[in-house]
Amino acid sequence: MIEVNNLAVKTANKTLLEPLTFRIQKGESIGVLGESGAGKTMLTKALLQLLPSPLQVEGSVVVHDQDLNSSSNEQLRSIRGNVLGYIPQNVQAIFDPYRKIGVQMVEAIRAHERTTKREAKSTAIASLREVQLRDEHYNFFPFQLSGGMLQRAGIALVSSLQPELVIADEPTTALDEETKTVVLELLLRKQRDEGLSILFVSHEIDVIKKMATRILVLENGKCVERGPADQLFNDPSSSRLQSFLHYETVLQRGAMKND
């Protein structure tokens, strides 16, 4: 459903993201693994065509036979949210702190669909229920929710627009273990039941393992390794992934000792 060909990000004299090519099928989930500063967030922003102007984006991002790199602002606007959903790492970065969650959901729904306020409101409330939030959270301000609830509300907002691909930029890094599981299960269920595609970006290997069937490993703005998840984890060739896995085993051993 999305085809990325030689996508690269450059400044006037430096390449920040080396040309990258991949595609995501309907219902598939791809994991992007990398340390902070490897260019993961840059990749997500480049996909959405939302990088600040001094950065140049090259290559193409094709969604429904339409190249986003050469689309008009209005075309891009109708694709963002509607086709490509985005979940940020920082839960405080989802909602405007000064307005109620429900109001912002309705605003987003009505930006893409001609509906009445009432219909949009019932869509929003249905989405909130789907993520195990209560109806009254519709009238809450963002600061009245805990981090985990806020991330769920963010997912409710994204899914109320019914996108085909969700780009999740470290959506669980800031969450505790329990909430993390809830959020991941939620995304996996949407993938299973509704054929949602997911681009899952993380530096946590266990999360990627759980979420992704295929994996890209980024290092310093370059894709150093790629392939199906099970194959990669069994036979890692890049030193980066090896050290990731090594670190993981050390952690697990340590955890076992503590038990």
Partner: peptide, 11 residues
Amino acid sequence: PWMFSARARGL
């Protein structure tokens, strides 16, 4: 930061 999210949801 939430200005980015607002754009990303296609407002």
